[in-house]
């Protein structure tokens, strides 16, 4: 294209043109990666805020501030209960949460309770027919709309179905929209 536009130019003007051509080439090498970074910036940020990528390990009994509130693993129990597939266990994980910032609809958007095992596999909550949450335990989503106030301590939990081979190394984890890509991964309660 620029070969056409450089048609009739006198010999003495060619030196600065050459220089500018070289400058443009160099600018291209800088501007292209910059443009790429700028256009992918939004997608990258959106992706980072949607994925639980980096684990923050929490000891058992320790409360950690996360999404404006203090999270502590209350209980983790598993067993054969309700209608389950073969070689599977029901697991209930509960967390005790002291509310700091009561704007849960903003802080806890996309709240996700998970179980992870030693191999890095992840399980999301599952409904198990015949197994319900203990009294006073809310799911994460219903907690968001529970109008809990600052200073309240609420119990959040869910039921999971986990295969037999994972039960021994299972660890509960929590991801919140306001904290991603970081998520909390709790140590199991001592036997």
């Amino acid at each position: 294209m620029n070969a056409v536009s450089t048609g009739p130019i006198a010999g003495e003007d060619r030196q600065p043109e050459k220089k500018w051509r070289r400058r443009s080439l160099v600018a291209l090498a800088i501007l292209l990666p910059l443009t790429l970074a700028e256009t992918s910036n939004d997608s990258l940020r959106e992706w980072l805020h949607g994925e639980d990528l980096i684990a923050r390990d929490v000891d058992f009994g320790q409360a950690v501030p996360f999404g404006g509130s203090d999270w502590k693993l209350a209980d983790l129990r598993g067993g054969k209960a309700g209608r389950l597939p073969d070689h599977a266990f029901a697991v209930i994980a509960t967390f005790s949460v002291k509310i700091g910032d009561p704007d849960l609809q903003k802080q806890w958007l996309g709240c996700k309770l998970m179980l992870t095992d030693a191999a890095g596999r992840r399980w999301l909550p599952d409904a198990i027919s015949g197994v319900s949450l203990p009294a006073g335990v809310m799911s994460c989503t219903s907690a968001i709309f529970s109008s809990a106030r600052k200073g309240d301590t609420i119990t959040i939990g869910d039921t999971f179905i986990v295969p037999e081979d994972a039960v021994k190394t299972i660890r509960p984890a929590v991801g919140l929209g306001s904290e991603r890509p970081w998520f909390l991964r709790f140590q199991r309660p001592p036997k």
Binding site: P85, R122, W123, L124, V162
Partner: peptide, 9 residues
């Protein structure tokens, strides 16, 4: 279909 690791469905 909701599927989980290690569990056949």
């Amino acid at each position: 279909h909701g599927v989980d690791p290690g569990l056949e469905k």
